[in-house]
Write a protein that binds this DNA or RNA. Structure first.
Length: 684
RNA sequence: GGCGAGGUAGCUCAGUUGGUUAGAGCGUCGGAUUCAUAACCCGGAGGUCGCGGGAUCGUGCCCCGCUCUCGCUACCA
């Protein structure tokens, strides 16, 4: 594309089952916002779109657990998330939600269009249905007799005993695992999007068309999927929370979340257009519009393969020009985890660091996971603030403003005679907009942020070399020129920092008492802040963050770590009572592992030869991630010997080794520690 | 196991189509300075570019093997 007439920028829709944390911000929202702000400053027509993803099974489960409706859950988190975006200066033109009626209509229409065009494959199959639970049963929710070996406890998709896979409907005497009822056969129709049909197009579009401009991680993922062969994906589900399937036979079915969610970008655009009196189609259907999706790496396949295939199938839409997916951010060496509360939540950050949104934005940009997973540490956060924002940026501004007030009572002095160094410095300022723009346009926000900081460095160096505080004593005229030049740098910073540090940019413009400039005016205008203009008193842009503050955050994390240990140390409640007869059915013996080897082509499985005292038998065990084959040989173990054999990857496993698992996921053998206990002795 | 991405200075990362002494920021050490939030400015030290082969006149960059980290995927009665 040459010069786009307008931009449509989307950000991954956050899932409304919790607040958002620094990982979301670093990976998606801050880079997208920098991009959007930059484009606006360069005079582009930009539409920056987001919204909450409110459908899907996890929300219904959470609702059930909390005894509220799914709508209650999504209402709660939608508001929290939306507020976080506002608080952190993410400048959406519209932030919508997938439970909005406009979205239901849009997604419905989209589905209908594809359906009418024959872009789906409909498949009606008879599936097992639990009349009491009023739902179709997924494979794992059906047990019955294996048609092949007669095992009575086979699952719907696979028999544990003989290892063959089959369909749930093949089972003899099927039972619902939910209610124990005999399920009935009921016809159910589902719609599939045949991705294989779009394979040729995807190959050409991505593998040939975007080899150069897409990030390696994104391109590689796509190539992997395409080379692997694309298959049909179901776009409907037998569920009741979501968008009803608008087609004959669609009763009791909804659109699968990944189908409806990306359409949310379009719905959000429509909502905005209606509100603003604009034409939404220009932003999605005009070939001069540049569409960019900001996402995390977990979303690559949806935004690069599936959604484009949907748009292409529909026929009237443009395709994304780029999908700059980021990798993941870790926190203090560990993965971010909502369930383990290992995160820095945005609402909490603002309580602990009020008014310091820019510090987090900056730290996350400087350490963004652009090419690989990165680690966020509070120490790094402190260093970014104290050594860069305070020491370089804030300090430069403070020096200039303080001196201007001191020497000239806040009035910008007129330059007298521009020496070579002054001219060079003014010329250097003019180069920055292009340099930073070039980084941003290539989605290298980390680099862009560093370039911005270099402009502040230029300012500090200029002052250090020119030494106005010395010159003032001997040459007042020269001092005026120096301060004039320094003030031009400060003004340039006010404009160029806006995408990265919007709150600071505002504050700085307040101090300098100047209006917003356009990005390119830093290059085109010779005077950014004119002589005679009066500025305000000095005010610190950033403040130092002390060690105690950082320690408090580390303590907070340590506390959630402890809380996790306690939570995982909570003993599971006792299971329902069994009879002595039940117990005596279990035949457990002391045994010794005498041989062990790794199961080929499996990551977790070891094939063990165990002396049970009765015999030497083969047991396949999923312990390969905790133990090597070598270290396990000779281990005393407890074996459940009369467990029905089961084939694992083609190897018959005759029994089970008793294990327990520590909170940090390490497996431990349950075994008698008295060496006089011989193999074959019974556990009773 | 399959696939993808990464492994470059103490830390976080750049290194364009292979071409002279591998770069930046932070940290560290030393110097200079005092307008400024003990900040700024200058200089130094610090790297067998994950490991082992190979192709090349020449490779951090190309090919093969191995290894570690992350993700997707299969397998943990």
């Amino acid at each position: 594309m040459n010069t786009p007439k307008r931009y449509t920028i989307t950000t991954a829709l956050p899932y409304t089952n919790g607040p958002i944390h620094i990982g979301h911000l670093a990976g998606v929202y801050v880079p997208a916002d920098i991009y959007a702000r930059f484009l606006r400053l360069t005079g582009n027509d930009v539409l920056f779109i987001g919204g909450s993803d409110e459908h899907g099974v996890p929300i219904t489960i959470k609702a059930k657990n909390e005894g509220v409706s799914p709508q209650d859950i999504v209402d709660k988190y939608h508001e929290i998330i939306k507020k976080s975006f506002v608080d952190f200066g993410i400048t959406y033109d519209n932030y919508s939600r997938t439970s909005a009626s406009i979205h239901h209509e849009t997604a419905s229409e989209f589905f209908k269009t594809l359906n009418e065009k024959g872009e789906f494959i409909e498949e009606t199959t008879e599936q097992l249905y639990d009349a009491e639970a009023k739902q179709f049963l997924a494979d794992r929710f059906v047990v019955g007799t294996c048609p092949k070996c007669g095992n009575e406890e086979s699952y719907g998709d696979q028999c544990e005993n003989c290892g063959t896979s089959h369909n749930a409907t093949d089972l003899i005497n099927p039972k619902s695992a939910l209610t124990g009822n005999v399920p009935i056969l009921k016809e159910t129709k589902h719609w599939f999007l045949p991705l294989d049909k779009h394979e040729a197009f995807l190959k050409e579009w991505i593998l040939e068309g975007h080899k150069k401009d897409w990030k390696p991680n994104v391109y590689g993922q796509c190539k992997s999927w395409i080379d692997d062969g694309l298959r049909s994906r179901a776009v409907t589900r037998d569920l009741d929370w979501g968008i009803p399937v608008p087609a004959e036979g669609g009763e009791g079915k909804v659109l699968y979340v990944w189908f409806d969610a990306p359409i949310g970008y379009i719905s959000s655009t429509k909502e905005w257009a209606a509100h603003e009196g604009k034409d939404w189609e220009l932003y999605w259907k005009d070939k001069d519009t540049k569409l960019v999706h900001f996402i995390g790496k977990d979303n690559i396949v949806f935004h690069c393969i599936i959604f484009p295939a949907m748009l292409k199938a529909e026929g009237s839409y443009i395709l994304p020009e780029n999908v700059p997916a980021n990798e993941f951010l870790n926190l203090e060496g560990n993965k971010l985890s909502t369930s383990k509360n290992w995160a820095v939540w945005l609402p909490e950050y603002l309580i602990d660091f009020p008014g310091q949104q820019d510090v987090l934005r900056y730290a996350l940009t400087a350490n963004a996971p652009e090419t690989k997973d990165n680690d966020f540490t509070w120490k790094d956060f402190q260093a970014r603030n104290n050594n860069e924002l305070v020491a370089i940026f804030g300090n430069f501004i403070n020096r200039v403003v303080v001196l201007t007030n001191k020497y000239y009572e806040g009035a910008i002095p007129a330059p007298v005679d521009l020496l070579q160094v002054d001219q060079e410095t003014l010329a250097a300022i003019k180069a920055y907009p292009d340099v930073i723009a070039s980084s941003i346009e290539r989605y290298r926000f980390r680099e862009a942020g560093q370039e911005l900081m270099n402009l502040a460095r230029l300012g500090n160096k200029y002052l250090a070399d020119a030494e106005p505080w010395k010159v003032i004593k001997v040459d007042e005229q020269r001092t005026k020129t120096i301060m004039y030049v320094a003030l031009q740098i400060a003004s340039a910073l006010a404009t160029l920092s806006e995408p990265f540090l919007p709150f600071t940019s505002d504050k700085l413009r307040g101090i300098l008492a100047i209006e917003k400039n356009e990005w390119n005016e830093v290059t085109t205008k010779d005077v950014l802040i004119p002589a005679g203009h009066k500025i305000e008193k000095a005010e610190l842009l950033f403040s130092k963050i002390e060690d105690v503050t950082i320690q408090a955050q580390l303590d907070k994390l340590e506390a959630s770590k402890k809380a996790n240990e306690i939570a995982s140390a909570v003993v599971e409640p006792q299971k329902s009572t069994i009879t002595f007869d039940d117990f005596t059915k279990l035949d457990m013996r002391v045994g010794t592992i005498i041989e062990a080897e790794k199961m080929p082509k499996a990551k977790k499985l070891l094939v063990l030869k165990v002396d049970t005292g009765i015999d030497v038998r083969t047991i396949v065990s999923g312990i390969a991630e905790s133990f090597t084959a070598e270290e396990v040989v000779g281990k005393r173990v407890t074996v459940l010997v009369n467990l029905a054999p089961r084939a694992l990857r083609g190897v018959e496993s005759e029994g089970m080794i008793l294990m327990t698992e520590t909170p940090d996921n390490k497996l431990v053998f349950v075994n008698p520690d008295d060496s006089s206990v011989g193999n074959g002795l019974q556990i009773s």
